[in-house]
Design a protein around this nucleic acid. Structure first.
Lengths: 337, 337
DNA sequence: CTGTTAGCGCTTTCAG
DNA sequence: CTGAAAGCGCTAACAG
């Protein structure tokens, strides 16, 4: 019996009818227009409560020509703590500007990323923050996003200019290898992962640069790539240890743990230095060196870049890149006798 | 010069004008209506490309009386891996139904949760999945959400019926304490956290139940609560250890690590058994028992419940509750000589 | 094959 | 103080 619009929710007209006024009056009451009589206001609010009416912000925004105040964040793997911290950083920074964050997972699929981008642009999100899944970034170019600005994270734009926040992958890889070389290691293996193409490549490049700078040639047989799967990573780590390195540099958390496990299982004694901090590192059995960086800060910077772009949409300056530093930390492992 | 609507993006009319057709024709081309001549189609698509036009899905949905295909997920702390896994579970389950997930962080603030709820309902999300920040759930009742269904996670509804997915907190607390009692411990401390009121209370209740069942009285002085902050938790853990327990049960990950650190620092020898799995547990110096559960599964169940509710919105069955089981796992710690 | 009219739910503008 | 008309961007329902 209650009058309802198609989608099942009452409309302003329903409220107006019940209160015996026009929908304009309802609109005014809801927006606290001062020139409304107390009695009318009461009647309207009564009808609102009775019907459980909530204004339709989408219709309102359409009429007002306003934006959605929505920003879409697309990450490759939400289960990875790096991305959840990233999301938190983005969210916290956007929230203070009254913007909402829509988080979507691309599961490392370029196809999904493209589909999501199209959808989000269609929904008129005000901006995109993306950890690109692949190398093809055409769908992120302004021509394809109807001008919706995009900020890339962790991987630089390919084939076009775009704002972007990176981690100092090269510097971190170089520093990790440098540490080990300083400690006298000469047979240092590298365990990366094939998916994170850019990231791993940079970290490896830094690793090799440190060898160059030390005047050493690096044995390519000591470089290996684990997969996305922890089990795969463990296998790769075991193989790598079998080649007899005295130390290993890893390109991410998963690989770091894989090496520690493989070493524990085989009883091999290797120094381990890897990317991403391990939050229980101080409680581990074995010593560990890590290249740590602030994932939340990455998110905050990306958000800020987007906000600046939104402010200046009329006269966009050149695309900018921001590089978040990494910090080397060492943990001693369990104190033994 | 390019004609553009207020928010800066071209509209269908702009495309129509440029292609020399009516907007209906553009609409048809975009939706692949077969009865459009090839040449017209080409002209329209040309104009679309030239202007960088993307259809406004919001306007379309308004006209069609369609829903938004959006579901809002509100969590108390996105930085906590539990919630990011939860989000992944929700996202993966909703995605297969073509629904998008909007993730928002309430930062444990009831006020923020209420504001977000109002906003999301106004935006006409199709459902809400909420980890409630506080005890006041009035804003989540159907009367306040204009009928938008809500599923609660981790904490049950208070003061109203609602779908809800819980973890077996009681059972887990009971099992953890039971383990330690079986091992002969008689002085077992409990470290909880005040914020997660319901969760901690249930875990403690289970802990005490195990003591009851063993015919033992538990000393209330052995119960303490750490804060949200890791430093605070460490302090509480240290105090607790100073009371000389032979074992500690912890209510969450943060507290587990706090106890391990405090024990390491003071050299105290205590057995530790706590809620939440620790992914490096097998690499730790010390042995550890945990109550583990599948956070992604919690998210999947919540999403499925919501989907069922959306299907049957006309004749809603009674609110349902689903309890995700916990599994006790033991890790041996570093093998010593 | 293509255009006109009307209206989704809301609000601005202009009249009362 | 309140209402009627027009229109945000789009599309169903009818023309032609």
């Amino acid at each position: 019996m209650t009058p309802r619009s198609k989608n099942g929710k009452p409309t302003m007209r329903d409220v107006a009818a019940r209160a015996g006024v026009s929908s304009m009056t309802v609109s005014r009451v809801l927006r606290d227009d001062p020139r409304i009589s107390e009695s009318t206001r009461r009647d309207v609010l009564g009808a609102v409560a009775a019907l459980g009416y909530r204004i339709n912000e989408n219709a309102r925004a359409l009429r007002l020509g306003q934006g959605t105040r929505l920003v879409a964040l697309m990450v490759t793997n939400l289960a990875n703590p790096f991305y959840s911290r990233l999301a938190l950083g983005v969210e916290s920074e956007l929230e203070r500007q009254g913007l909402f964050t829509v988080v979507a997972n691309t599961a490392d699929s370029e196809t999904k990323e493209r589909a999501l981008t199209t959808d989000f642009v269609g929904r008129r999100v005000e901006g995109l923050i993306v950890v690109p899944a692949g190398e093809d970034h055409t769908h992120l170019r302004a021509e394809h996003t109807a001008g919706t600005p995009a900020v890339l994270v962790a991987r630089p734009p390919v084939g076009h200019g775009a704002d972007c926040v990176l981690v100092d992958d090269f510097g971190g890889g170089r520093a990790l290898a440098g540490r080990l070389l300083d400690e006298g290691h000469r047979r240092i293996a590298f365990l990366g992962n094939a998916e994170a193409v850019y990231t791993t490549a940079e970290r490896l490049r830094g690793f090799l640069a440190a060898h160059d700078e030390a005047g050493l040639r690096h044995d390519p047989a000591l470089v290996r790539h684990g997969g996305t799967d922890p089990a795969e990573a463990l296998g790769a780590a075991a193989e790598l240890l079998a080649t007899g390195p005295t130390a290993v540099v890893t390109a991410n958390n998963r690989n770091t743990l894989a090496v520690l496990r493989a070493a524990k299982a085989s009883g091999a004694r290797v120094a381990v230095a890897g990317f991403d901090d391990v939050d229980t590192a101080d409680l581990l059995d074995a010593p560990l060196t890590v290249a740590a960086y602030d994932a939340q800060e990455v998110g905050r910077r990306a958000a800020r870049m987007l906000l600046e772009r939104l402010d200046t949409q009329a006269s966009p300056p050149a695309p900018r890149t921001s590089v978040v530093p990494v910090e080397i930390r060492t943990y001693e492992g369990a104190a033994r006798g």
